[in-house]
C-alpha cells in the first residue's frame, strides 16, 4: 500500500491535469466545422497548434502508463474503483481552474466517492 497510494496520486493528478488542460485547449480551438474528413483534419491541425493540447498529451500518456504500473502491482478490484478519485480532483479543478459552478448535489456525490475510495483502499 505504501507504493500504491503515491502512484495512485500521480495517476489521478496526471489524468485530471491532462483532462483539464485538454478541456481548456479544446474550448479555445472550438468545434469542428463539420464531420467530413477534410474538416476533421483541419480541426486536428488547429488543435495541434494549441499549447494546452500539447500540455495535455504527455500528461494523459503519463496517466495511462501509471495506470498500467498500478495494475501490475494491485488487483483490478482495487485499482479501478480507487481511480474514481478522478471525480474528486476533477470537480476541484472544474471549480477553481475552469470556474464552473459546482452544486451541493455534486459535492455530495464527490464526498460519497471519497468515502467509497477510502473504504476500498483500506481493504487493500
Amino acid at each position: 500500500m505504501i507504493r500504491i497510494i503515491p502512484m495512485l496520486i500521480f495517476f489521478i493528478c496526471s489524468s485530471t491535469g491532462g483532462e483539464i488542460a485538454m478541456t481548456y485547449g479544446m474550448k479555445r480551438v472550438g468545434e469542428p466545422e463539420s464531420f467530413r474528413p477534410m474538416a476533421l483534419l483541419r480541426f486536428l491541425g488547429k488543435a495541434m497548434t494549441n499549447g494546452r493540447v500539447w500540455l495535455a498529451l504527455p500528461l494523459l500518456a503519463a496517466s495511462f502508463y501509471s495506470l498500467l504500473i498500478l495494475l501490475s502491482w494491485a488487483p483490478i478490484s482495487l485499482v479501478i474503483p480507487a481511480s474514481a478519485s478522478n471525480y474528486v480532483v476533477g470537480t476541484l479543478g472544474a471549480k477553481y481552474l475552469l470556474k464552473e459552478d459546482v452544486t451541493a448535489k455534486r459535492w455530495m456525490g464527490v464526498l460519497l466517492v471519497c468515502a467509497g475510495v477510502v473504504l476500498v483502499l483500506i481493504t487493500g
Partner: peptide, 20 residues
C-alpha cells in the same frame, strides 16, 4: 467492506452525473 466502498462510489458517481 470493499463491496460497500464500490457501492458508495457508484452512488457518488451517479449523483455527480445527475447535475447540470
Amino acid at each position: 467492506r470493499r463491496w460497500i466502498g464500490v457501492a458508495m462510489i457508484c452512488v457518488g458517481v451517479l449523483l455527480v452525473g445527475q447535475t447540470k
